[in-house]
Structures are given as structure tokens and as C-alpha cells.
Simulated scan of single mutants.
Amino acid sequence: AAQAAGADGAALTTAVAVGIEVTVRLGMAGYDPELNNSVFFEHGQHATSICGAMGAAVAAGMLVGLDEDGLLDVLGVTASMAAGVIEANRTGGTVKRLHCGWAAHSAVTAADLVRRGFTGPPTVLEGRFGFFTAFLRGEADHAQVTDGLGERWAVPDIFFKPYPANHFTHAAIDAGLALRAQDVPLDRIDHIELRVPAAVIRTIGQPIDTKRTPDTGYQAQFSGPYAVVAGLFGGGGLGLGLSDFTDDLARDPARRALMARVDVVADDECTKIFPYQFPAVVTVRTDDGRTWREEVLTNRGGPQRPLSDAELAMKFRDNVAGRLDPDTTDQVVAAVAGLADVTDVADLLRPLTRLRTATD
């Protein structure tokens, strides 16, 4: 959208900030403190792709020059395009990889339609048949949307994911990596207990037989047992990278032997902290009676344990390895680091035209 509008880096930065704010606030409007979980998720909906479409639409609308009424229209139009079902988190299928891209596609399309005259309902959020009713069945906390809007920002509190896996698995990965550093003998492990917030078990611990035997690297990205075991084995990137989530590793007999010994259970302390962190406590017992315990209560990549610019660049390099040559990768890293000073967003995107395809 920024490229189509001829926008500069400063305008893009502003639009991204506002878009993320809209996304986070709509997402938190669907958080139920009594359930201690997202109402979206309780209904089988992927809040990332639903709320993400709404936020991205506001960002795209800003970039193409929509005024206040136009931005309201773009929310109204996008609400009819936002979608995402999360059953793939539990039992497999790669469709979830499409969700964020579809949200962005919907957003850019909606902004373009509104620019050409399409309109949406002015009560798209709170109306009788609006967003809150359609997606949350009216169980929305409106104050999460309006309180401190424009004064207190959610954006500084967002988390960057260090590992290419479901965010609920990250503390388990960190615990596994920490136990690896303590030289826990993998060949003597008798039992592993992964304790997590109650609300996340359905995503990373159920059905447990499937989570202990992921058939693909994609399924492994949503497996609590695989997360702990992969951490114990160690990997690339920032501890684990894309090369650690392959079909072959998901089926690796040594990893599966350890995954078979992992139980995923609810932990009261972790449940109290959720959803502001996605904590985990891992206990490992060996066949000679020794026990190791690792507690990870704050997520790496959040405000309490931020990733450095160098670490973020390292993750990017890991993600594009084999797709972009090193010189091009460095150009993109440098452009992103100086995004506010980029005069034409096309300068940021142009190096990506050298992207290699899977058949190259």
C-alpha cells in the first residue's frame, strides 16, 4: 500500500504503529478475564487474522490518503473480509500460514475499494450485527478499545517472536535450551513435565498423541513436546531456527522417543500470568533419580527481555537464507534499520525482486 501510494518511510512507520494499535485493542476487547482466554480462540477463531485485517486496513487506508470517514468505511468493509479458523493449530494442516497474508490482502483490497467509493456501516464495531456481535457474540470489553486511545499506546508492549513456532511454545523452547546448557543427559531422560497456562494446552498439548508424534515440521511448530525436545537438542538461528522445524526432524526417532515421555499439564502460577506472558515450567527426571527444573516466566522478545536490533536482523537472515543472497539481505536490513529516513518505500522493496523461487 505504501509503495502504491508513493509513501515515504516516516508515513509507513506511522501507519504501521496505528494499525498495530487497532489490532491489539480489538484483540484485547475479546479477552475474557474470567475465562483467562481470548473469546476469539474459545470460538475457534484466529484473532491474529481477524483483528489483523482490521488494523492493517486502517494502516493501508492512511497510506492511500483516506480521511476519518474513509477510515471508518475501511473498517466497515474489512469486517466482511476478516476470517480465520484455528483448528489447524490442534490437528494439522498448513492453512494457518495463509491467515496473516490473507489479512493483509483483505486490508489492501478494502482500502482500494473504499478509495473507489465502497462504504461500510458506521456502527461496524458496536452495532446490533457488528464486529463485536459477529465474532464475540457481544462478549466484548469496549473499554479496551477506547480507554486512553491516542494517549496510552499498546505498541511498545508488543512481542517479537525469536523462534519460528507458535508463541505458546517459546518458553518451553527457552527452558529446553537452558537445560541443554546444564548438560542434562538426553539418553538418560525418563520423564519430562511441561507445565503451562491452562488456556494454551489445547493448542500445544492436545490431542497429546498428535503433539507427541508430529508428522510434519508444521505440526511440530504447534507441539509443546517437540518444543522442549528441540530446545534440549539445540539448533540454529536465535536458538532454534527454520532448519529445526523440518518434516525429517519431526519424525526423527530420537526426538520422538523423548517426546513420548513429555506430559503437558496446567500450572496455576503460569495461568495467573497468562496472557501477559506465555510462561512454562519444565521438569526433567533421569533414570538415575536426578531432577532438573527450569522456570521461564517471561518471554524472550517482550519488553522485559527484548531482542536487540542485531538479534532481529539475525532472525531475518535465518528466514531468508537460500532465498536472498547475503548482499541483498544486508541491503534490506540496512533499509529497515533506517526506515524513518527512507524517502520512497520502493527503495526498501526493490531488492526483494531478486528473491529466489523454490525452483531456482
Rank of each mutant, 00 (worst) to 15 (best):
V64Y: 00
V64P: 01
G65C: 07
L66H: 08
L66Q: 03
D67T: 06
D67G: 15
D67S: 04
D67C: 05
D69W: 02
L71M: 09
L72Y: 05
L72S: 11
L75V: 10
L75K: 03
L75A: 07
G76S: 06
G76C: 07
G76H: 02
T78W: 04
T78H: 03
T78P: 00
T78Y: 01
A79C: 11
A79P: 01
A79V: 14
A79D: 15
S80L: 09
S80W: 08
S80E: 15
A83G: 00
A83H: 03
G84W: 01
G84S: 07
V85K: 05
I86M: 04
N89W: 10
N89S: 12
T91C: 08
G92A: 05
G93N: 04
G93K: 00
T94K: 09
R97E: 02
H99N: 11
C100H: 02
G101P: 02
W102M: 00
A104F: 12
A104H: 07
A104T: 10
S106A: 15
A107K: 09
A110M: 01
A110P: 00
A110Q: 00
A111C: 04
D112I: 11
D112S: 15
V114M: 09
V114R: 06
R115Y: 02
R115V: 06
R116Y: 05
G117L: 14
G117M: 12
F118G: 02
F118Y: 10
T119G: 02
T119V: 15
G120L: 12
P121E: 05
P122D: 10
T123E: 12
V124K: 00
V124F: 08
V124R: 01
L125P: 00
E126F: 12
E126N: 07
G130N: 03
G130A: 07
F132D: 03
F132G: 02
F132W: 10
A134K: 14
R137S: 14
R137W: 04
G138R: 15
G138L: 13
H142T: 11
A143Y: 07
A143K: 14
V145M: 08
D147C: 08
L149S: 05
L149Q: 12
L149V: 14
E151L: 14
R152I: 15
R152M: 06
W153I: 01
V155C: 04
V155G: 04
V155A: 12
V155R: 13
D157F: 10
F159A: 13
K161A: 15
K161C: 12
P162F: 11
P162I: 14
P162G: 04
P162L: 12
Y163W: 11
Y163S: 06
P164C: 11
A165N: 08
N166P: 01
H167W: 11
H167F: 14
F168I: 06
F168K: 10
A171T: 13
A171M: 14
A172Q: 01
I173S: 08
D174H: 03
D174E: 15
A175D: 09
A175I: 03
A175C: 14
G176K: 11
G176P: 12
L177N: 06
A178S: 14
A178G: 10
A178N: 12
L179T: 05
A181S: 14
A181L: 05
Q182H: 10
Q182L: 15
Q182I: 09
D183L: 13
V184T: 04
V184G: 04
P185C: 10
D187P: 06
R188E: 15
I189C: 12
I189G: 09
D190N: 05
D190K: 13
D190V: 02
H191Q: 15
